[in-house]
């Protein structure tokens, strides 16, 4: 018997010799066996095909043994695989996510992206040539007068926003104010939210989020960390 034939024969007999004696099916390297089958093709094609198919059959027996072992283990934990699949298929995704978070111990890390990096990224974005026939975005930085053309704004609303700012800046001298308190709950809520967005985009106020409480607060713009940055695009 040739070496190659011998190797295939060993794989064919594996389930009887190893598993029948109660060996641990996970000790067997399935990928390794498949590689061996591929590497030990015989010159006699007919014989090779017979032996290869018998060897693959043996490998499938080992895989089946591994699968049965897992199912037994799950049943040992009083977990039925089919029941688990049924439960998941019937469950709402929010419920599944909630259960997952009950058993998640997340790794912690702080992601930071400085204003400087955002500015650099946007400047680069403005320089990148578009694909195909599309027109480029043009320069990111524009003269002040030109920028206003791209921000259509009724004069009336703008003056209202400035009135709102005068009042807000007085209140902000006493310290930060929660966003919800600023926009209120009355009929003017949406309009005030727009003023806040407009003033913030012009760098006149800062909007911050408290990472611990999740509360959004409004502050006067300060140099450095929380300074609002208006970047006109397009």
């Amino acid at each position: 018997m040739s070496k190659k034939e011998n190797a295939l024969r060993r794989i064919i007999e594996l389930p009887d010799t190893f598993l029948a004696r109660g060996g641990d099916p996970f000790v067997i390297d399935i990928n390794g066996l498949l590689t061996q089958i591929n590497e030990n093709k015989l010159k006699d094609q007919k014989k090779s095909l017979n032996m290869e198919s018998a060897a693959i059959n043996s490998v499938s027996k080992v895989v089946k043994e591994q699968q049965d072992w897992v199912i037994d283990a799950l049943r040992g934990l009083k977990l039925d695989p089919e029941l688990l699949r049924q439960k998941l298929s019937a469950m709402d995704i929010k419920k599944i996510a909630q259960i997952t978070s009950n058993h998640t111990y997340p790794s912690i890390g702080i992601h930071r992206l400085s204003r400087y990096r955002i500015r650099v990224a946007l400047e680069y974005f403005g320089l990148v040539e578009p694909w195909g026939r599309r027109e480029g975005l043009g320069p990111v930085q524009r003269p002040e007068g030109q920028t206003s053309e791209f921000f259509p704004m009724e004069k009336e609303i703008e003056s209202e926003a400035m009135e709102f700012y005068d009042e807000l800046s007085k209140r902000l001298k006493g310290g930060t104010i929660p966003y919800e308190e600023v926009i209120g709950k009355d009929i003017m809520r949406l309009r005030k939210a727009f003023y806040v967005a407009y003033l913030s985009s012009n760098g006149m106020i800062s909007i911050r989020r408290n990472p611990i409480s999740g509360e959004t607060i409004i502050d006067m713009p300060v140099e450095g960390e929380f300074e609002s940055l208006a970047i006109p695009l397009g």
């Binding site: 998941l88 995704i93 929010k94 599944i96 996510a97 909630q98 259960i99 997952t100 978070s101 009950n102 058993h103 998640t104 111990y105 997340p106 790794s107 912690i108 890390g109 999740g214």
Partner: peptide
Amino acid sequence: IMTKEPLSDLELSRWMRIEEVAGLAI
């Protein structure tokens, strides 16, 4: 570095969306 206690509050798992967390569980 990780928490000693499980997350429990789904709102805190902001690095993934709800369907992504559910997909992971599946």
